[in-house]
Deep mutational scan, measured.
Amino acid sequence: MSIQHFRVALIPFFAAFCLPVFAHPETLVKVKDAEDQLGARVGYIELDLNSGKILESFRPEERFPMMSTFKVLLCGAVLSRVDAGQEQLGRRIHYSQNDLVEYSPVTEKHLTDGMTVRELCSAAITMSDNTAANLLLTTIGGPKELTAFLHNMGDHVTRLDRWEPELNEAIPNDERDTTMPAAMATTLRKLLTGELLTLASRQQLIDWMEADKVAGPLLRSALPAGWFIADKSGAGERGSRGIIAALGPDGKPSRIVVIYTTGSQATMDERNRQIAEIGASLIKHW
């Protein structure tokens, strides 16, 4: 067993022997301040990774656009098919120029040779490549099948209805392509620590998230040296922004954090800054 596999296998073990965790309302004060600064709703939840206990939450059962955070769930569904012998990570998928959609920095470079399922998941999570996500959605049967996968996990809230990039439209009061912070946090925890996926697939999923290259201005910008984070960000229309993450000190994750916002007129930089400040408060009061 590799060191990384050992780390993920012992996530519940280490967490069980940690000192009790206590909620700190100071972080919620910052979440509410972010709402004021952005002029928009902000949803927040913080779960203990081992027990699933909610440590703090704000608007945990209000719907927010998922945006690209759905790509972690998508690759979880792909990995479940791999575990069941219905898919192979090494299978190569070929596609054409007509398949390319807006923001496809990886797939646009491989029109000639195609990409493997493993490479597509890596591109979808680490670079948020939209064509990679659409190609992977095709392998599982489309958005409705991802929703069905989530329902089978016990998540009857999260739903995907459309493809990239239309799913980022974020129309107010439109339930399409949305989740709730509580539902997303619980589902992410199941994917990373539950028995739904094999140990190898859980490790692969967290490795992809740990290698995320496009979430630097968010929670990662607030992390002290030595902290662990595996995350996936999302951005959408109407001032929408979000991030889902597993993080913790001492090089291992111990909490799940989900943050979503929508309806702001603020710039992307300002949305990023507010999420980073929430992260800084979380870490300060850990």
Rank of each mutant, 00 (worst) to 15 (best):
D113K: 06
A40L: 05
E56D: 10
S221E: 08
H24R: 02
F58P: 00
L247P: 10
A245C: 13
V106N: 15
L136A: 12
G242P: 05
G234L: 04
Q37K: 14
E210M: 09
G76Y: 04
L282A: 09
S128P: 03
S233Y: 02
G43M: 02
D36A: 09
P143Y: 06
D129W: 00
Q204I: 02
V106C: 06
V117K: 00
A123M: 15
L79F: 12
Q265C: 05
L47R: 02
A246Y: 04
E108R: 01
N134K: 10
M67N: 14
N98P: 00
A124T: 15
Y260M: 04
R220S: 05
E164Q: 00
V101Q: 04
S128R: 02
R92Y: 12
Y260D: 02
K30M: 13
E277N: 13
D177Y: 12
E277Y: 13
K213V: 14
T139I: 10
L49W: 09
R189D: 11
A185D: 04
H151Y: 10
F58L: 00
V78S: 13
V258N: 05
D231S: 11
A211I: 08
K232T: 14
N130Q: 14
M180R: 10
W286S: 03
P253C: 03
L219K: 12
E102T: 08
V257T: 06
I275T: 13
L218S: 08
H151V: 11
A148E: 14
D207E: 11
V157S: 07
P105V: 13
T131K: 04
K213R: 08
A225G: 07
W227R: 08
G251K: 09
Y44Q: 01
G39F: 08
Q97A: 12
T147N: 10
L160I: 04
G226V: 07
K284Q: 07
P253N: 10
R81Y: 05
I256E: 09
R81C: 10
D212G: 12
Q37V: 11
V29T: 02
G142H: 06
T69K: 00
A280M: 15
W208T: 04
E277I: 11
L223I: 02
L219T: 07
L73Q: 05
I275S: 13
T261W: 12
A276H: 11
W227K: 03
I256F: 11
C121Y: 00
L199Q: 09
G226L: 11
Y103W: 00
G43E: 01
T147S: 09
G142C: 02
E237G: 09
D83G: 03
E145C: 05
S80V: 03
D99G: 10
L282E: 05
G248H: 07
L282H: 05
L79I: 00
E166S: 08
G114D: 13
G251R: 10
A84R: 04
W163D: 13
A280N: 15
T267A: 12
E26D: 14
E270I: 06
T178V: 10
S240A: 04
T116D: 08
E277L: 11
G216N: 12
L188E: 10
E46Q: 13
V72H: 05
T187I: 10
L89A: 13
T27K: 05
L197F: 06
E102G: 04
S201F: 09
G263N: 14
P217I: 14
P217Y: 04
I125N: 00
L197H: 02
T138M: 13
Y103A: 02
S281I: 01
A245W: 09
I125W: 00
S240G: 06
D269F: 08
G194P: 11
V31P: 11
G263H: 13
T69N: 05
E277R: 10
Q274A: 07
S254M: 08
E169L: 12
R91Q: 12
R255F: 04
P25N: 05
I283V: 10
A222S: 12
T198N: 14
H110K: 15
A266S: 05
Y95C: 02
A215Y: 09
C75K: 15
P165N: 01
E108P: 00
S254Q: 08
T112M: 15
N98L: 00
T147Q: 09
K284V: 12
I244S: 07
P172W: 06
G85T: 15
L282N: 02
H151M: 08
T179A: 09
G141H: 11
W227M: 13
T198G: 12
E270H: 14
A183L: 10
T107V: 01
P25C: 03
L120K: 00
R41K: 15
A200Q: 13
E169I: 06
R238A: 04
R202H: 10
K284Y: 07
L28D: 10
G154A: 07
N272C: 01
T262R: 04
L205N: 01
F228V: 02
F58C: 00
G248K: 04
A185C: 01
H156I: 08
E210I: 07
L135A: 04
M268L: 03
L135P: 04
Q88R: 12
A276W: 08
V257I: 03
R238G: 05
R255V: 09
P172N: 11
L28P: 13
T193C: 09
S281L: 09
V214Y: 13
R41F: 15
A84Q: 04
S264K: 13
I283N: 07
G242F: 02
A124H: 02
R81S: 12
M184L: 04
D155G: 07
L100N: 06
K213H: 07
A280C: 12
D113H: 00
S96D: 00
T69Q: 13
L137I: 15
R59W: 06
A222V: 06
A235E: 05
I140G: 11
Y260F: 02
M180I: 02
D33Y: 03
L137S: 14
A123W: 15
K252W: 11
S68C: 06
S80I: 01
E169C: 14
L28K: 03
L205D: 08
A280E: 09
K32V: 04
P181R: 01
E61S: 04
I45M: 00
L219D: 13
Q274R: 13
R189E: 14
N98I: 06
R162C: 12
K252A: 07
D36W: 03
G85Y: 10
V106Y: 10
V31A: 07
R63C: 13
C121R: 01
L135V: 07
E277W: 11
A183R: 04
L135K: 06
K252S: 10
A182T: 09
P224Q: 03
E56C: 12
A245K: 02
R202P: 06
L137T: 15
C75L: 15
H285M: 05
R241D: 08
I278W: 10
A235T: 04
D113S: 00
A34H: 00
T139P: 06
I256S: 03
E46S: 12
I283W: 08
T262M: 15
K109M: 14
T198S: 11
W208Q: 05
S80N: 11
K232W: 01
D269R: 03
A170T: 07
N152E: 14
D36M: 09
E166V: 08
M115C: 02
V72W: 09
R81K: 04
F228T: 02
Y260H: 02
R41P: 06
I93S: 05
A132N: 06
L55H: 05
A225P: 10
R92W: 02
P224R: 11
L111I: 01
L223Q: 14
E145A: 10
R238E: 03
T158A: 04
I171Q: 06
